[in-house]
């Protein structure tokens, strides 16, 4: 084939179109500036912004697995909240065993205890995810209605199992000593734990982004989200990839459960299903299957919930729903829709 017969060309994307594509990234700083203007007091704004980012990061941790599972496997998992709750209870148990370490003034011992609790929660929820995918999800691939029914059933079973193992009462988790209290910056008071949550969430986002963009597994996930059949035709076992992604998503929900439990300082068997409303809103705002969209959606939800709770507490009840409606009216498939060839 000669160059003379075909002149390579590529469609140039107009600048206005490029700006439109990047616009969702600007929504978070735009909302932060709008919040500053509305609140007026920089110290209150800083406190609320850090609280909003922390809340957003924890929702992102719980939602990231769900969105990838939906994008890659086309599975609507209403049972995702079960992993959040189980993760929180496993984390609680480990922290209770390590009460001596969490009560110690040593930051290193505190961090080690939390790290062990997180790893244990991720291990248990990852294994639970394996069983959930094999027993509950695998028989209903491609059948959305059945997926909703059986995963809801799985959630109920998991909640009842929590009652059996940990009892029906809500439990109190005490944060490790190093995570208690606030840092005072000027007139603003910022809870230490919220900074930890922001750090962990940011590290997770950057890690996921690196894996998705720069590794072959990430390439496979991105390709599988778009056209799983073609990935199989290239010689890759997408069912194995499904399982790995589902287990990872479940483990991340477990991590989110520990983080959310420490944030709220109380845990219940229903905490997973309660937080799932926000998680689904974030996944829908971000665009089903998009990790970056999910991250931006979580930040928007976290910030807006905190700003409106301060400015107009009654409006706060509907602020996240209103945000979702506004985003969907602007971009009906979410901020970063993932192309799916079906």
């Amino acid at each position: 084939m000669s160059d003379t017969t075909i002149k390579p060309r590529i469609e140039k994307i107009p600048l206005s179109e490029q700006f439109f594509q990047k616009l969702p990234v600007l929504l978070v700083p735009i909302l932060a500036v709008a919040g500053l203007l509305a609140i007026g007091n920089p110290a209150s704004w800083l406190t609320l912004t850090v609280a909003g980012l922390a809340m957003g990061m924890m929702i992102f941790i719980m939602a990231s697995g769900l969105t990838v599972v939906f994008g890659l496997m086309d599975v609507i998992n209403f049972g995702h909240g079960a992993f959040v709750a189980v993760g929180a209870f496993v984390g609680f148990t480990v922290l209770a065993w390590l009460a001596g370490w969490t009560a110690s003034p040593s930051v290193m011992l505190n961090l080690t205890a939390v790290l062990i609790a997180i790893l244990a929660a991720m291990l248990v929820t990852g294994l639970l995810g394996y069983a959930f995918e094999r027993v509950i999800v695998m028989p209903v691939y491609g059948e959305h209605l059945k997926q909703i029914l059986v995963t809801m059933g799985g959630l109920i079973v998991a909640q009842q199992m929590i009652y059996v193992v940990w009892g029906p009462d809500e439990l109190h988790i005490s944060r490790p000593e190093a995570f208690k209290g606030s840092l005072v910056i000027g007139e603003a008071a910022i809870e230490k734990y919220r900074l930890v949550a922001v750090g962990i969430g940011l590290a997770l986002f950057l890690g996921m982004r690196h894996i998705l963009k720069s590794t072959k597994v990430g390439l496979l996930v991105r390709a599988g989200v778009e056209n799983g059949e073609m990935v199989e035709a290239l010689g890759y076992r997408i069912r194995l990839l499904f399982l790995i992604v589902f287990m990872t998503g479940s483990a991340l929900a477990g991590l989110g459960g520990v983080m959310w439990g420490l944030y709220q300082e109380t845990i219940t068997a229903h905490m997973g299903s309660e937080i799932m409303v926000l998680v689904f809103i974030v996944v829908i705002i971000g665009g089903l299957g998009s990790v970056e969209g999910c991250f931006i959606g979580a930040m928007l939800v976290g910030l807006l919930a905190n700003y409106t709770a301060f400015l107009a507490p009654k409006v706060a009840l509907i602020s996240t729903i209103a945000l979702m409606v506004a985003i969907l009216m602007w971009r009906p498939q979410g901020l970063y829709p993932v192309v799916k060839a079906k």
């Binding site: 390439l219 991105r222 390709a223 989200v225 778009e226 056209n227 059949e229 073609m230 199989e232 035709a233 290239l234 010689g235 890759y236 076992r237 997408i238 993932v338 192309v339 060839a341």
Partner: peptide, 24 residues
């Protein structure tokens, strides 16, 4: 045999819709 195994035996497939991963 499943599709990945058939592919690994040396059969490639170019579907009608090309199956390009446009996000990549």
């Amino acid at each position: 045999l499943d599709t990945p195994e058939i592919s690994r035996r040396g059969i490639a497939f170019v579907p009608e819709d090309m199956g390009i991963f446009t996000d990549l």
